[in-house]
Design a protein around this nucleic acid. Structure first.
Length: 289
DNA sequence: CTCGTGGCCTGATCGC
DNA sequence: TGCGATCAGGCCACGA
C-alpha cells in the first residue's frame, strides 16, 4: 500500500537511471493502466517515444517525470503498483502492465517496468501547469494540481492546514485521508498518526483544539519521516522498491494491523473496526471519541 | 458548496 | 477438491 514514504523511495530509486535517459520504446500490455491518460492529448506511446526524462518529482502519492517535450509522465501506484528497474533482457515480471526501454548515457540500456496486480494505479502523459505555492511558482501535472502539498514539502503551510482541518465537519481520520487538505497519508499512516496523537479517528475534526491539531500534524510528520528513513512499509511483497527489495517498516507499527495485541503505551488490546470501507485500528483506552 | 458512498480491480483466504 | 463470498484500500464520479 504505497503511501508517501513508499512513493518517495520509488522516486529516489528511479532518479539516478531514469533522469537523463532517453525513452526508446514503450509497450503497453494492459490499457487499463492508462486510465489517467487523456487520449485527447495524443497517443500515450507516441508522446513518449524519443523523449528524454528531465527530473523525478513527487507530491503526496503522485510521482511525475518532466520530459523534454514540456509534458510529464505521471505515475500513481494506487494499491499495488510498483516501478521496477530491470536489465533490458530480464524476464517479464508477473503483472507487468507497461514497459519502457530506455538508454541512459552512463548506465546504458535498461527497462523501466510498471507492475500492478490490481490496476488501481495508472500512468499518463499530462501537461505541466504553473502553480503558486507560497514559496514561489512550481510546475505540476494538471491532474495533480488539485492535490494539497504534502507535510514534508518545504512549502507546506502548517497554519493553513490546521485552520482548514479545524473547519471540517467530518471525522479526523477522513480529513487526514483527504488529499486536498494534506497529501501523502493513506490508511496505514493515518492510523499510526492518530494512535501517536491519542485521537479517535471518528472524533469530529472541528472539535480539535488548536494545540491538539498541531500535535496531530507533528505526529503525521514524524510517522512519515520515520517510515521514510526505514525505507517504507511492506506487506505480502506487494510493495517492492525499485530494485525489487522489500521495505521494512512494518515491524514498527503500533496500531495498524495490530488488533488483539497490547497497545505499546497502555497494554489495552488494539481494536479493529470497519470505517469508511476500510480497517481502522486504534487503542480504545488511549483514543477516545 | 460540502460530505459520504459506491465502483473499479486481482488474488489470497475462508467456509461449506 | 472446488467454488463462491469476502477482504485488502488508492482515487474519483456522483448523489444528497
Amino acid at each position: 500500500m504505497p503511501e508517501l514514504p513508499e512513493v518517495e523511495v520509488v522516486r529516489a530509486g528511479l532518479e539516478p537511471a531514469f533522469v537523463g535517459a532517453r525513452i526508446d520504446s514503450v509497450e503497453v500490455f494492459d490499457h487499463r493502466s492508462l486510465k489517467r491518460h487523456d487520449a485527447r492529448r495524443g497517443d500515450f506511446v507516441g508522446l513518449l517515444q524519443g523523449r528524454t526524462v528531465l527530473s523525478a518529482e513527487r507530491r503526496g502519492k503522485f510521482m511525475w517525470f518532466p520530459l523534454d517535450s514540456g509534458d510529464a509522465l505521471v505515475t500513481h501506484l494506487g494499491m499495488s503498483g510498483q516501478v521496477l528497474l530491470r536489465e533490458s533482457a530480464a524476464e517479464p515480471d508477473r503483472h507487468l502492465r507497461i514497459r519502457y526501454a530506455i538508454t541512459h548515457p552512463e548506465y546504458g540500456e535498461l527497462a523501466v517496468c510498471f507492475v500492478d496486480q490490481r490496476i488501481f494505479g495508472s500512468m499518463a502523459v499530462d501537461e505541466l501547469v504553473e502553480q503558486d505555492v507560497g514559496g514561489g511558482q512550481v510546475l505540476v501535472p494538471s491532474q495533480a494540481a488539485h492535490i494539497a502539498l504534502d507535510p514534508i514539502d518545504p512549502n507546506f503551510d502548517d497554519e493553513v492546514f490546521i485552520s482548514r482541518l479545524r473547519k471540517k465537519s467530518t471525522g479526523v481520520k477522513r480529513a487526514l485521508l483527504d488529499q486536498t487538505l494534506l497529501s501523502g497519508v493513506g490508511n496505514i499512516y493515518a492510523d499510526e498518526s492518530l494512535w501517536a496523537a491519542r485521537i479517535h479517528g471518528e472524533k469530529p475534526a472541528d472539535s480539535l483544539s488548536k494545540p491538539k491539531a498541531r500535535e496531530l500534524l507533528a505526529e503525521v510528520r514524524l510517522v512519515l519521516t520515520k517510515a521514510l528513513a526505514e525505507g517504507g512499509t511492506s506487506f505480502d511483497e506487494q510493495y517492492v522498491n525499485v530494485n525489487g527489495e522489500s521495505g521494512y517498516f512494518s515491524h514498527s507499527l503500533n496500531a495498524y494491523g495490530q488488533q488483539g495485541t497490547p497497545c505499546p503505551r497502555c497494554g489495552t488490546p488494539i481494536r479493529r473496526v470497519t470505517f469508511m470501507n476500510r480497517g481502522s485500528h486504534f487503542c480504545p483506552r488511549c483514543q477516545k471519541k
